[in-house]
């Protein structure tokens, strides 16, 4: 019945989902869950304010990825950014790489303008589909950053090798830059080139940070418990392996 070598994975996933679900339930019932401040998210207001004061556009991109978890985390941030941009009458330009992400992004942005009571201010031509080709997307975004002379450049989502090209272009036009990705290989590039970096899974706190969303707060607490279990397993595994036991390694491979 089970696919070979996926039995432990299945039960691990069930435990993870159970823990996250339980904490979401607790949060919705009113459990007091707080999150630490994340500098990258705090700086988003500063970035929007800067664009408003300078009378220049604000740029956001959810990256090169399709509809994956990191893109959704980026869209959570976009929802807040678009609402604030609408409130302050700052021009927001959003560039998207994948067609399916474009459709969702435009809807998220439109909804945010609607919530801000500025549905008429939404400019569909400022939510731009660039190209599903990685380098065409990179050059398209660089073109937008250069031509529009953006005041702020926010990049939160799934990024690959194009990350540094985008960040350096933003740096060239003197934009304040906030970036976040879960791709461990691209984080160093963002750290080198951007003012603020949202590191790895910090991105998934966007909904909890901006909207104080109970489901998000609960799931973050659940994630913390799973991380604690993972740390425990790593320590136990290291000790067992040091003493010559392969028990945990064999269990994980089942």
């Amino acid at each position: 019945m089970f696919v070979a070598k996926r039995i432990f994975d299945f039960f691990a996933l069930m435990v993870a989902c159970g823990l996250i679900g339980w904490w979401i339930r607790q949060a919705m019932r009113g459990a007091n869950i707080r999150i630490r401040p994340i500098a990258g998210f705090d700086a988003i207001d500063e970035a929007i304010g800067r664009a408003t004061e300078m009378g220049k556009p604000l740029h956001f991109t959810p990256g090169f990825g399709g509809l994956v978890a990191a893109t959704f985390a980026g869209l959570e941030a976009l929802s807040y950014i678009a609402r604030k941009a609408a409130e302050y009458d700052a021009r927001l330009i959003v560039t998207v790489s994948q067609p399916e992400t474009y459709a969702v992004t435009e809807q998220v942005e439109r909804q945010a303008y609607l919530e801000a009571g500025k549905a008429d201010s939404f400019r569909p031509e400022d939510c731009r589909f660039i190209s599903p080709d990685q380098w065409a997307y990179a050059s398209g975004v660089v073109g937008v950053l250069m031509r529009e002379k953006v005041a702020s450049n926010i990049m939160i989502g799934q990024f690959a090798a194009e990350s540094l090209i985008l960040a350096e272009a933003g740096n060239t036009v003197g934009a304040i830059q906030i970036a976040g990705t879960t791709n461990a290989y691209q984080i160093p590039f963002f750290v080198a080139a951007c003012d603020y970096v949202i590191l790895g899974d910090e991105m998934f706190a966007a909904g909890a940070h901006f909207a104080d969303n109970k489901a998000h707060l609960g799931s973050l607490r659940g994630e913390d418990f799973i991380k604690a279990i993972c740390i425990g397993l790593i320590i136990v595994g290291a000790v067992l392996t040091t003493f010559g036991s392969n028990f945990l390694t064999n269990l994980l491979a089942k």
Binding site: L13, I20, I24, A69, F72, F204, S219, K227
Partner: peptide, 17 residues
């Protein structure tokens, strides 16, 4: 560390979606 935390985040986002 980043990959493990990211993967756990993926599970949470997928579950919420």
């Amino acid at each position: 560390g980043v990959m493990i935390a990211g993967a756990i985040g993926f599970i949470a986002v997928s579950l919420r979606i």
